[in-house]
């Protein structure tokens, strides 16, 4: 009993120590993580950050500059920009995270499958991926949105489909190089079946590059959501979205700059957080930088 407790404590200590190393070695990553946590907490606990509703119209209060009552000012319908800023993080995170999750899980599994099976199956899958990759991701997402129509789910789907071939390519090429690797050959010699090889040997070794890439793509997904909303194709109104708020207020920039500055700030925050995190993730997972 006592022993297992001690073990637990030791493990805790180890984790805390590791966290300390992370802070020391990855200052930018730490900054990204903090930013990300802020955005995350705004998204999860929005009512704690603001009491006002982001969709509450108040015509007497249109175009109020930032003040103690309206911290970030108010917009053309008298809605509180601070509240829209806070709730906008929800849209960004929900769409960004779920689309990348969807893209990476589906793309990852298909990539490993296609890379390991090889042959005709791989050929066909990869030609389809080529077709999808021939378009810039954002153009593909725009196309899908135009066909599906605007809704939160469709936005997630569109971004996921746009990024899915990229993740597929990555895991496929990793899987292929792993398939040819000596430790997989050793496993074959040891008698491992194809399934065991994919689950025990190939998949775990795909995780690091996959995770690094997915985190890096997260920033682009935030941006894609903003772009789609900016183009009027993202989540429908009145759901607050940084991208939409930014684009709709571009004409007001001269007279009410706060309407553009704060949504822009939100997008920048989320994208920076994801990119910094992605960078340090690569530093940590890249075996070449690993200390013996």
């Amino acid at each position: 009993m006592n022993k297992s407790l001690q073990k637990k404590e030791a493990r805790m200590k180890k984790h805390i120590q590791r966290l300390g190393f992370f802070f020391r070695d990855e200052p930018l990553g730490t900054f990204g993580a903090v930013l990300f946590l802020i955005v995350l907490s705004m998204a999860i606990a929005s009512p704690l950050w603001t009491e006002k509703s982001p969709t509450d119209v108040s015509i007497p209060n249109v175009f109020k500059p930032p003040s103690s009552e309206f911290w970030f000012g108010s917009d053309n319908l008298g809605r509180d920009v601070w509240s829209r800023f806070v709730y906008g993080s929800r849209t960004s995170l929900l769409v960004g995270l779920s689309s990348i999750l969807l893209a990476s899980v589906a793309g990852g599994i298909l990539g490993i499958f296609s890379g390991l099976i090889g042959g005709k199956t791989d050929l066909i899958i990869q030609r389809i991926m080529d077709a999808l990759l021939s378009m810039p991701a954002i153009v593909l997402a725009i196309l899908i949105m135009a066909v599906l129509g605007t809704s939160v789910l469709n936005t997630i789907l569109a971004i996921a489909v746009a990024y899915f071939p990229r993740i597929n390519r990555l895991t496929r090429s990793t899987a292929i190089s792993l398939r040819e690797s000596l430790f997989v050959e050793s496993a074959i010699v040891a008698g491992a079946s194809k399934i065991r090889i994919s689950i025990m040997h190939v998949a775990p070794n795909c995780i690091a590059p996959w995770l690094v890439y997915a985190t890096a793509l997260l920033g682009t997904a935030f941006l894609a959501e903003a772009t789609l909303s900016f183009l009027g194709l993202g989540v429908p109104p009145p759901i607050p979205s940084w991208g939409r708020d930014l684009s709709e207020n571009l004409t007001n920039f001269e007279f009410a700059p706060w309407l553009c500055i704060f949504p822009g700030l939100g997008i920048t925050m989320a994208v920076f957080a994801a990119n910094f995190l992605g960078d340090s993730m690569r530093n940590i997972f890249d075996p070449r930088l690993k200390k013996a």
């Binding site: 690797s181 000596l182 430790f183 050959e185 050793s186 496993a187 025990m200 040997h201 775990p204 070794n205 075996p287």
Partner: peptide, 8 residues
């Protein structure tokens, strides 16, 4: 030998 051993 390094590549013959699963790093994970």
């Amino acid at each position: 030998p390094y590549n013959s051993l699963n790093p994970r």
